[in-house]
Design a protein around this nucleic acid. Sequence first.
DNA 1: TAGATTGTTAATCGATTAACAATC
DNA 2: TAGATTGTTAATCGATTAACAATC
Lengths: 210, 210
Amino acid sequence: MITNKNCIIRLSRYKNALYRLQALGFVKVFSDNLADAVGGTASQVRKDFSIFGISGNKKGGYQIDSLLEKLNSILGKDQLQKVIVVGAGHIGSALMRYRGFEKEGIKIVAGFDIDPAKINRSNPTPVLPLEEIKAFVKTNNIRIAILAVPDIAAQQAADMICAAGIKGILNFAPLGLKGAEGCIINNVNVEIELENLIYFVNVTEKTKKA
Amino acid sequence: MITNKNCIIRLSRYKNALYRLQALGFVKVFSDNLADAVGGTASQVRKDFSIFGISGNKKGGYQIDSLLEKLNSILGKDQLQKVIVVGAGHIGSALMRYRGFEKEGIKIVAGFDIDPAKINRSNPTPVLPLEEIKAFVKTNNIRIAILAVPDIAAQQAADMICAAGIKGILNFAPLGLKGAEGCIINNVNVEIELENLIYFVNVTEKTKKA
DNA sequence: TAGATTGTTAATCGATTAACAATC
DNA sequence: TAGATTGTTAATCGATTAACAATC
């Protein structure tokens, strides 16, 4: 199935919006409700659903609970996702301590660092030496890693992670990484996002003055 | 000028790649060098440049230093960008302690929190009470804020930040925020990025089996 | 039934890529 | 000069939006 990244991101947003609607007591939604909730169009909501064979009821909209089941299944949220963090610096530690992932079925099971001072096996989320990563990934069947090391170490760390058998990396280091064969890399670049925001703020100010 | 977000993100990547090339001793680049460095096409590099009136030398490529000057000017990097962080929890604190922004001309000048226990005026980056934000933004002429508060508080905090005169918000809270008039919001949603990665890893595994 | 909403097809829109004349 | 590279236009590609028949 050919799907683009934006489409899958919209599915995540639909899911999150549906949980909020459900919490408010709603049982069904129409495509235009959902479009409003995520800032899209009704056409696009129905189109996205039709790509994945999700159907509602003509005139009746969509049942929220069954819709959530289908979205969760598509997004792989019907099973707990175990994730490791590589790099136990400020960002890595913050992610390990962040409790919000658990309600999303994502559990950070361990951190890894090259610095012996950062190792801590008795933490709620243990921090282990980098050289144990391959064994850990294998025995615990981990597929996803979050990479949060300094930029200078990022490509090397990524190579090591790929070699350890990880299938997907969420990269926080501020440079685009090349993924090894069979490993997908998703770059989250805070500096570039900030630059982007600054650019559009500047443009808006300039056009306002003009 | 009509520009899309991806195009501006590419400009940031070109800039970063050019610094790396410069550090390696290069003085000029061709469009296909730069394309390789960022994982794009030579056509797109030249197209992006032509949108902003950046021209090189037929047969001679582009001078790296003058190219960097132009890109930096477009991206607003010819002046220091002062940024505040709202929410001094794990993520907010990690961002305040992160030193990588400075070499990019981005300086986090203060944090703000509603929790009195988090206040610390003598920090290298002081953490101030939320109620001081409006005065601080005004006297220091701040335009950009990073929002790193729990989801439940995010929309309210965003409204307050907008009211304080901030023009752009980089939002780390895991839900899409509605920006007030005259305030741009750029959402960075780590959970959704993780979900996205998981989806594509799953799809790849399934198609490999099939 | 009349009105409203889905599901899908066709039209539109915009971004990326290819092609190539200009030219160094 | 011959070869290589830019700058820009045209072609392609893909995603979004609009339209509307089906139907509850």
